[in-house]
């Protein structure tokens, strides 16, 4: 009799224990022993990450074409000349269809505006030679200090500013000789624009000194 009662108690304890084990939440796993050093895309500055992301999303793959490059692979293409070499590498493989890097940057900004209304407070300015800088934020330290090679028309009077006031990422710029030709000094359709409140005036003035007006730039009249 006693043995039977012991058996019953043991069976009940076993069943309850198995249920509690099954419903026990998994113990939180300890984080990795040490956070791995950020490399590749993750190690880039925010401004460079935007450019790499724009290049990445601009790729077009086909079933029998070359495989698209990942963010890390594109990040590795940057050299001392900036991102133009990365763009040319993608272009040579037939992965991008755009004619200039600026087209990719601008279209990426436009799509970002469409997909999200959130603005992170940064304005990325990219020159035609691949240099980039962030304005309106403390994050833009990547190329602010870099010496910029003068544009072909650097000695001429700055004719216009380009500052795209967008609800999200305002990305503008370009230094394309063809585009420059389209906007001649006498072209009254290209008015002088005042910097927006978001873009730091000093940074924008530096851009204005060196950059001609791209054909696709959005001109925002001053207040």
């Amino acid at each position: 009799m006693i043995a039977r009662q012991v058996t019953l108690v043991a069976a009940l304890l076993f069943s309850l224990a198995s249920v509690s084990f099954a419903q026990e939440a998994p113990a939180p796993t300890a984080p990795a022993a040490a956070a791995p050093a950020q490399t590749g895309f993750q190690a880039l500055s925010p401004g460079d990450q935007k450019i790499v992301r724009a290049l990445f999303w601009a790729q077009e793959v086909t079933a029998d074409g070359p495989p698209a490059l990942s963010l890390n692979e594109i990040a590795a293409l940057k050299d001392r000349t900036g991102w133009v070499s990365a763009f040319k590498a993608l272009k040579s493989q037939g992965l991008v269809d755009a004619k200039t890097l600026n087209q990719i940057i601008a279209s990426d900004a436009a799509s970002a505006v469409r997909s999200s209304g959130v603005h992170d407070g940064t304005t990325l300015v990219v020159t035609g030679n691949g240099k980039s800088m962030l304005a309106g934020t403390e994050l833009g330290t990547n190329d602010r200090d870099s010496s910029r090679s003068p544009a072909p028309n650097a000695g001429s009077k700055p004719r216009a500013a380009q500052a795209k006031r967008a609800p999200h990422d305002a990305v503008t710029a370009a230094n394309n000789s063809d585009q420059h030709a389209a906007g001649s000094p006498g072209d009254s359709s290209v008015p002088h624009a005042a910097p927006t409140t978001r873009v730091q005036r000093d940074s924008l003035a530096q851009v204005n000194d060196a950059l001609p007006v791209p054909a696709e730039a959005t001109i925002i009249p001053g207040p």
Partner: peptide
Amino acid sequence: TASTNELRFATLKSFDRLGMPVTND
């Protein structure tokens, strides 16, 4: 209904959209 090449690229985009860094490819 897509090639491996196209599906891989779409997955890489998904990881980017989800903020998951790719460690092996």
